[in-house]
Amino acid sequence: MNFVLGAVDYVGRAVLHSVEEAGRIFQLFLSVLAWLVRPPLRLRPIFKQMEFVGVRSIFVVVLTGTFTGMVLALQTYHGFRMFSAESMVGATVALSMTRELGPVLTALMVTARAGSAMAAELGTMRVTEQIDALYVMAANPVKYLIVPRMVASVVMLPFLTIVSDFVGVVGGYFVGVHLLRINSGIFMKNITKIVELDDIFNGLIKAAFFGLILSLIGCYKGFNTTGGAEGVGRATTEAVVLASVMILISDYFLTALMF
């Protein structure tokens, strides 16, 4: 009997906790919006974060994008060959990259790289009282720490995604045309014929949303860290897991909404 009650109690707490957390994240988001529009808007920290989130993620995004495009071409080729539809490999790779894989993989990579760093950085600042110090110096940490990270993520994710899309198609082209001997003209022709401007732009809008999600969750987890170095580690892990899950879940809904 006690065991049953305990289980119920545990589930109840877990649900309550996650609802509460969702509410707090949303609250943080609102305060970010409020601080975003309250002058002065300092560009320097934003650029610093843009460099961190965007420029320093290029390498990993290019790497994952290229290999994703390559493996997509390889896999779809074997499937499409059964229907003699090898010429559609390029279009499939391009469509998959622009609509789904470009934004999602970029967001996941940036989550792993920058989202975790945000959580760790803010978590450390929290446990070493740097956040308190900001308060004491009458500088709002939301404005000073979170706004630049979120702005940078939202702005940079689409750019990283377009790079990912591009190198993905290039990777697919390399495998399709040079290794699998698909006619290059038909490969490109089908891409330009089937992929539309909306596919690219909707992918970029998605990416911006993912940037919002990963930075918001990363900052939230870091900002509310407790428990010293161990707490920082826990916050980082939670931030990456929660952000990745939220990116994938929201991807479904964004896709359903857009396409």
Partner: peptide, 27 residues
């Protein structure tokens, strides 16, 4: 190189790729 310059360069490259792709697939 300053952060601004790096970010600016990256944004520029992104814009060029986007413009190229849009032009390729755009009606």
């Amino acid at each position: 190189i300053s952060s601004e310059a790096k970010v600016g360069l990256f944004v520029l490259i992104g814009m060029i790729i986007l413009a190229y792709m849009s032009f390729q697939v755009g009606q």
